[in-house]
């Protein structure tokens, strides 16, 4: 089990898509899910997402932790929505089918639960695409794909390098904290909050120093090899658009169009089965 999400190398039709395709697909897909509350569209998008995930060959255990974490967030979100506006659904759909009255202003109303269901589906429609973008995009292609959609390559590369150094910094942190604990710095919960804050400075200070050292070396190495020389640069890992990329983007665009078209048909963002 891993708590962090990172690229998992595999060979699948999804992995073979270019980084830019996956990024643009993810953006369009998210917009399509964001603009609509139409249950049919959201369910269709979620099911398609699951299919894409299966095609990618990734395993449930790769994402279990992340998915459970997100479900937890969604549940909290839904509870909060219900607590603060228990009649939101009634307002939206214009009818009220109460099943059971709970207490005070809270009842189980079909419209409210239908609204909350749609709200949840919006998340579920996007999650597979987001996970696929993170897990199936080679980090090397990440900078290249940002660059392709107009972000400066310097920015893209700094982001990619920062991402790559996360494990190194984690390791430094681990080593430093062990060595400092050996000197008697207590990081357990036994100490008072103020003491713990002070103690963590004993780890952060060397961590910052050694990270600065790292930055100096890498920026020298990059400049010595001509980084920043030209306004543009090429990318060795960049892959040409193939049929699959066009198909993927077409799917996303069609989805967006369908989502927009249903808005026109429904006369709004909501699909109303109650009238």
């Amino acid at each position: 089990m891993s708590a962090t999400l990172s690229y998992i190398k595999k060979d699948s039709p999804i992995h073979r898509l270019t980084g830019s395709t996956k990024f643009i697909f993810f953006l369009i897909w998210s917009i399509a899910a964001m603009i609509t509350y139409d249950t049919r569209i959201l369910i269709a998008m979620f099911l398609m997402g699951v299919v894409f995930f299966v095609i990618s060959g990734l395993k449930w255990k790769d994402i279990r932790f992340a998915v459970l974490f997100m479900i937890w967030l969604i549940v909290i979100n839904l509870i909060a929505l219900f607590v603060f506006s228990p009649e939101q659904g009634v307002e939206i759909y214009g009818t009220r089918h109460e099943l059971v009255h709970l207490f005070w202003r809270y009842s189980i109303v079909v419209e409210e639960f239908f609204y909350l269901f749609n709200f949840m589906m919006k998340y579920l429609a996007v999650i597979p695409a987001a996970l696929l973008f993170i897990l199936a995009t080679n980090p090397s292609e990440f900078a290249a794909s940002l660059n392709k959609i107009g972000v400066s390559y310097k920015v893209g590369y700094s982001v990619a390098i920062a991402l790559r150094y996360i494990p190194d910094v984690q390791r430094d942190f681990h080593d430093i904290s062990q060595a400092q604990q050996a000197r008697g710095i207590d990081l357990s919960k036994k100490d008072k909050m103020t003491a713990r804050l002070k103690n963590s400075a004993a780890i952060l200070f060397p961590l910052v120093l050694s990270s600065l050292q790292r930055i100096e070396v890498i920026s020298n190495a990059m400049e010595l090899r001509g980084f920043g020389k030209n306004k543009k640069r090429t990318w060795i890992v960049e892959r040409p658009f193939k049929k699959g990329d066009y198909i993927a983007l077409l799917i996303a665009i069609v989805m967006l169009a369908v989502s927009a078209w249903f808005m026109v048909l429904n006369g709004g963002r909501y699909y109303n089965p109650f009238v």
Partner: peptide, 22 residues
């Protein structure tokens, strides 16, 4: 370690060519 820029060997060797827009 510090001077390894690319995410893979291929990218690291090609780094200066990328900057030259080859």
């Amino acid at each position: 370690d510090g001077q390894f820029i690319g995410m893979t060997v291929l990218e690291d060797i090609a780094f200066s060519m990328e900057n030259d827009c080859v």
